[in-house]
Design a protein around this nucleic acid. Structure first.
Lengths: 174, 174
DNA sequence: AAGACTGACTATCTTTGACTATCTAAGTAT
DNA sequence: ATACTTAGATAGTCAAAGATAGTCAGTCTT
């Protein structure tokens, strides 16, 4: 078994054992424990604990610093989960983003308020920085996923599970 | 727990227990109590009790000198306005964004949910596209402004600038 | 070729201590 | 009395040291 896989399972065990929906760990301690370079931890995090995997990472440097990993439960057949993992993809044109948002609000997958918040974050004015359109598309996709994940997490916290279920498996390139 | 965090909570407890909206303390006594260098107190004040955090500091040197910490209450609408117009500016470092969000939630200017949504949109993971940091700073400012503006509009629509419960969020929970 | 792994370099946050600035009070000179 | 001086008591500043985590390009493995 590869080291990365071992570390991955270890972290997932920690998450499973935790009361909360997240765990805190010290990068250096973990690296010490597994006898590897500290940057190996970053590698594991960036390849196996990404937003599309349903994880959020927060960290602090300096004395007393640490890494926090938050897991958002994915339920089978959860539409939000499908969106984050597949539908949004790596690139999202402005037009597609608006279309998607409208669908999500109309199908009550997300609230109107949340839809407006996402729209605000993705608005052309917000993204009016001098970068190629391809980069903006990547950005839209990332921001969209990150915000949807946050909504999923909130749903999980409030124990008020997904408003809808309906999975429509459409093709997913945007 | 970091010493700075401990001292921060201690001071906030004092503030909470106080009848006034401020407390007075002796730098050296505090330092003695926490067994640290007096300048540590200055560090805590300058990183956690700034105007952005909603605090004002006054002090007197010499015999009988002391430090006074005052918590400033702000009107929601005005504060949001100020943020949108002045504070956010054209550029916003990651650190500043987090600081700002934390203060906004602590002062109930925005709800915890909105704070988390903005944090999700501004998270390093969401902005992980290959552009210079200067561009990211510009982007953060724009997204932040756009989302705050959306909140302000929503408040106006509902005519009910409803705050939320006072929730103390943890350090990088924002 | 793709994924796993590493190490040097960088960025950020905390803590400390030496040095500086300011204030009060008491003492001294006029 | 009034002005000046000085000692002691505070607080402020800043840069260095320490403690973490992040990045990235190159190497190794499969």
């Amino acid at each position: 078994m590869r080291l990365s896989d071992t570390i991955e399972s270890f972290i997932k065990e920690l998450l499973g054992a935790s009361e909360e929906d997240g765990v805190e760990l010290k990068r250096n301690e973990l690296a010490e424990y597994f006898q590897c370079a500290p940057s190996q931890i970053n590698y594991v995090l960036s390849t196996r604990f990404t937003p599309d995997h349903g994880y959020m990472i927060e960290s602090r440097r300096g004395g007393g610093g640490c890494i926090r990993i938050i897991h958002v439960e994915r339920k089978q057949g959860d539409y939000l989960d499908y969106l984050i993992r597949e539908r949004v993809g790596l690139s999202l044109a402005d037009k597609d983003a608006q279309l998607l948002l409208r669908q999500l609000v109309e199908s009550s997958t997300i609230s109107r308020e949340d839809g407006l918040m996402i729209a605000a974050a993705l608005s052309p004015q917000a993204l009016a920085v001098p970068v190629p359109e391809t980069v903006k598309c990547a950005l839209r996709a990332r921001i969209m996923r990150s915000m949807l994940l946050n909504i999923a997490r909130r749903n999980q916290r409030t124990k008020q599970p997904a408003p809808t279920a309906l999975i429509r498996i459409e093709h997913h390139e945007v």
